[in-house]
């Protein structure tokens, strides 16, 4: 407990502390005076009505909400960019389709058969008559 501390020990620490306060340099004293005036001025200025009504953490919430709103606005504003991207995408798809369409029909047997049906009908007739000649 406090009464177990030697009086001189306790007193010495206090004396050193008091001396350090008394010998504070002028610059620090002057800055402290300025700080006091600034603090009193700040306290004297009435806060805005909103500032008085809202708790301090509400500003943090408002900041986060503003950031989210900004993100949403940017996302919505993207359609010009997004549409461009979409147009680019559809153009690319159309180009791919063109490439596919302009590919050699011989690569696609179904397409080849549907486009040259007359040829295959004629070829089948020729083959059938040749077979008939051979059997005769």
């Amino acid at each position: 407990m406090a009464n177990r501390v030697p009086v001189d020990w306790e007193a010495r620490s206090r004396a050193l502390y008091e001396e350090s306060i008394a010998t504070l340099d002028l610059r620090t004293r002057s800055r402290l005076t300025e700080a006091r005036h600034a603090a009193l001025d700040a306290a004297r200025r009435p806060r805005a009505a909103v500032g008085r009504m809202l708790p301090r953490w509400s500003w943090l919430v408002a900041g986060v909400a503003a950031a989210l709103l900004m993100a949403v606005v940017l996302r919505i504003a993207m359609p010009s960019g997004g549409a461009a991207a979409g147009t680019e995408g559809s153009a690319a798809r159309a180009e791919d389709a063109g490439l596919v369409a302009s590919a050699d029909p011989a690569d696609d047997p179904v397409r080849m058969m549907s486009e040259d049906a007359d040829f295959y009908t004629w070829a089948a007739g020729v083959a059938a008559s040749a077979d008939a000649g051979r059997t005769e």
Partner: peptide, 27 residues
């Protein structure tokens, strides 16, 4: 203010931080 400054300075070991802490507390 001076006593408060010394308390803050002992704890923070920095003059500017101590002055800021005192001003904050006063405000």
């Amino acid at each position: 203010e001076r006593r408060a400054f010394r308390i803050a300075q002992i704890a923070l070991r920095d003059v500017d931080d101590a002055l800021d802490a005192v001003q904050d507390a006063m405000t």
